[in-house]
């Protein structure tokens, strides 16, 4: 593996400058904040409500912005030049993920504060959130690499949003419902499960299971994004 901090930093700085001047995309960071304010005012205090703005952040900000960042490089014909530069795949993928990672972290912290969520075991929850963030970033990269333009990426990300972010809501169907039995294994559901276990002050073992499941999702998503990225270094 070939990693250069200078290159990663350069790509990050470039993305930051571009992103801060792209109002069309950057305004979406306000949506989860807005939601968090509304939920915070409503005064409800179930894990489910706490996690609505959190999952919203993952789908509408993390995955969506990441997909746009990659798709725009393709649309503008800048991705191939990046690939032909001495930056390695790791440099480019890391460099292009740092911005969204930072934005996600800030938004999660702000929305948790706004809804008044104070988890018992912060380190474990943070671990879960980090693993989730990595998963949604990888999903965004995959979407961005599959599409040719920002417009297409915005459409392609919709199923990701629906499946991965809103699926946990299937719990309203009841824990025995077949749909819930399936979607409970999705990373979004596992994150809520983790939060509930933390709340119950469960054993370390029962905290590890959801983290392990989420990690498997992340690793698979990273693997797919790297394979896809390698394919894009060539025509066809």
């Amino acid at each position: 593996m070939n990693i250069s901090i200078r290159r990663i930093q350069a790509i990050f700085m470039k993305d930051y400058k571009e992103f801060s001047r792209n109002y069309a995309v950057s305004f979406v960071v306000l949506i989860p904040i807005f939601l968090a304010i509304v939920y915070g005012k409503s005064g409800s205090n179930s894990i489910q409500t706490y996690f609505l703005p959190i999952n919203m952040t993952f789908s509408m900000v993390t995955a969506y912005i990441q997909a746009c960042l990659i798709a725009e490089e393709k649309e503008r014909n800048t991705l191939r030049s990046l690939m032909m530069s001495p930056a390695s795949i790791t440099d480019i993928l890391l460099g292009k993920s740092v911005l969204v990672f930072v934005i996600t972290a800030v938004l999660l912290a702000v929305s948790m504060f706004l809804v008044g969520y104070t988890p018992e075991n912060i380190p474990v929850l943070v671990m879960g959130l980090v693993v989730s963030t990595v998963f949604y970033i990888a999903m965004g990269i995959i979407c961005g690499l599959f599409t040719k333009s920002v417009m297409e990426a915005s459409l392609a990300i919709l199923p990701v949003m629906i499946i991965f972010s809103f699926a946990p809501l299937a719990i309203v169907l009841g824990e025995t419902h077949i749909v819930y039995k399936i979607v409970q294994w999705l990373p979004g559901s596992q994150l809520i499960l983790l939060a509930e276990e933390i709340n119950k002050q469960a054993s370390t073992m029962s905290l590890l299971t959801p983290i392990a499941v989420m990690s498997i999702w992340s690793v698979v998503a990273i693997f797919i994004s790297v394979v896809l990225f390698k394919k894009r270094t060539k025509d066809e």
Binding site: K14, R21, N22, R76, N77, T78, S81, L82, M84, S85
Partner: peptide
């Protein structure tokens, strides 16, 4: 060094900012 129709620039950045990225990528 390669210049083809696949060589694009970042539109929202200045000339200098575009070159600075590659200055760093090539160290």
């Amino acid at each position: 060094g390669i210049l083809t129709d696949n060589s694009g620039l970042y539109g929202r950045l200045s000339i200098e900012e575009n070159l600075l990225l590659y200055c760093n990528l090539y160290e």
